[in-house]
Design a protein around this nucleic acid. Structure first.
Length: 426
RNA sequence: GGAGAGUUGGCCGAGCGGCUGAAGGCGCUCCCCUGCUAAGGGAGUAUGGGUCAAAAGCCCAUCGAGGGUUCAAAUCCCUCACUCUCCGCCA
């Protein structure tokens, strides 16, 4: 949620910045709302004050044993207009909420202007894509041996966009998640969490998934939502709290399944396990002092990169342009890993600084000894990494001519020492 | 699933129609006193919003959430959420 003061004092500039993100704020309509809000709120509060004052004097008069009828007559007149005024104010505030809850965060000034993913800017490249002296197979082919990766069975069980992993493939998948968690907790200073996978509507709103993206989430009969990312429960842990400044930064990580409807993605990435309704992810979340959030963004991006580097997977870092960023973010880096079969880089991680956008929605604040008032924290989140996509990257980048796959060294201890998996011979 | 008890400020806890944004205690901050330590005395200490160029001031809201009764609700009524205890069921 944007700072309401921005929409009051710098409306034109704010609208211009929102336009960069492809969001048109109806400035005139907003101004009209704001004007009536002010008028109606003032009137409501004045009436309220008047009534309270008289009510108190009724109490006092009664205490002295005086006749209170004149006062009762006086207050009777207030009732109706107060009710009307309150109702009016409620309507106006609801309309304003409607606008503000659907308005995305502002992009940081350092973010390149642009319309869509074609305008994203490459920041750096790490590693050298390997050349193969044989025809490279994609992860689907590599996984099909002995049904290590079985889309058909998954489809029978659940429908499209699900995957079943078996044997060494499932083991490798687990190894990846284990490795990532260990790295973040042991080397990067994150605390590990096990979180609920079902959350309520308020939690989804706190991190920005609701109300705008209701169609992207699975909802249960009792109106809970399957988490689309561990960012949702982790970030909301500080909802409605006032943290001691000394406790910042808070660094959290969790390995969870993620559930997404993928409502708008018909026909995209239908082959293999690139885009699924259910996938695993190790997520990083940081709650930081507002002065430190951009620093933390770089650090977190580095934490995600470290996983890819340890796995020896070539990747590049791009900064998303204004038009391609997510709703809550003010700046986002994507990590894209090399996918040999597609001869291109594909997104494997997204690291965002949301500044105070989520914390304002969640009322997540901190108190510092110098400042009397509680201040909003800044929140960041990043994948470290998407496990399924990392599995794909490992399979394809470590494949050999015979269809076997070498196990990256850092994973071997999670694979009972195996150095190669050969599903065909399993 | 059944029965009961609860939810008040950073924490504990009183209040059960008006003088209560809320006693008292703990904690914290500042001051005084005390040659250390311990103890003592005094003052202060919720959050959000509005008004304002801003501050001060003033106003409004908030005692789990939402609604209702009333001139007036932390206090009465209804609905919901959560916590705890006992019973049942269960990985």
């Amino acid at each position: 949620m944007l700072d309401p003061q921005l929409l009051r004092n710098e409306l034109e500039q704010t609208a211009a910045k929102l336009a960069h993100r492809g969001y048109q704020l109806d400035v005139a309509a907003w101004q009209a709302l704001e004007q009536s809000r002010k008028a109606v709120q003032l009137e409501t509060e004045a009436l309220q004050n008047k009534r309270t004052t008289i009510s108190k004097s009724i109490g006092q008069a009664k205490g002295r044993g005086e006749d209170v009828q004149p006062l009762l007559d006086e207050v009777a007149a207030i009732g109706q207009s107060l009710d009307e005024s309150k109702e009016q104010l409620k309507t106006i505030l609801a309309q304003m909420d409607e606008v503000i809850l659907f308005t995305p965060n502002l992009a940081d000034d350092s973010v390149p202007l642009g319309k869509d993913e074609d305008d994203n800017v490459e920041v750096r490249v790490w590693g050298e894509p390997q050349t193969y002296d044989f025809d490279v197979k994609d992860h689907v082919e590599l996984g099909e041996h002995n049904k290590g990766l079985d889309a058909e069975s998954a489809a029978n069980l659940s429908g499209s966009r699900f995957t079943l992993l078996t044997g060494e493939m499932a083991q490798l998948h687990r190894a990846l998640a284990q490795f990532m968690l260990d790295k973040h907790t042991q080397s990067h200073g994150y605390k590990e969490f096990y979180v609920p996978y079902l959350v309520n509507a308020q939690t989804m709103q706190g991190s920005g998934q609701l109300p705008k993206f209701a169609d992207d989430a699975f909802i249960t009969e009792d109106e809970r939502y399957l988490i689309p990312t561990a960012e949702v429960p982790l970030t909301n842990l500080v909802a409605d709290t006032i943290i001691d400044e000394a406790e910042l930064p808070i660094k959290m990580t969790a390995h969870t399944p993620c559930f997404r409807r993928e409502a708008g993605s018909y026909g995209k990435d239908t082959k293999g396990m690139i885009r699924q309704h259910q996938f695993e992810k190790v997520e990083m979340v940081q709650i930081v002092h507002p002065d430190k959030s951009f620093e933390a963004l770089e650090e977190m991006t580095g934490h995600a990169e470290a996983i890819l580097q340890d796995l020896g997977l070539p990747y590049r870092v791009i900064v998303l342009c204004t038009g391609d960023m997510g709703f809550s973010a003010t700046k986002t880096y994507d990590l894209e890993v090399w996918v040999p079969a597609q001869n291109t880089y594909r997104e494997i991680s997204s690291v965002s600084n949301c500044v105070d956008f989520q914390s304002r929605r969640m009322k997540a604040r901190f108190r510092s000894p110098e400042v009397k008032k509680p201040q909003l924290v800044h929140t960041l989140n990043g994948s470290g990494l998407a496990v399924g996509r990392t599995l794909i990257a490992v399979l394809e980048n470590y494949q050999q001519a015979d269809g076997s796959v070498l196990v990256p060294e850092v994973l071997q201890k999670y694979m009972a020492g195996k150095t190669v998996i050969n599903l065909a011979s399993a």
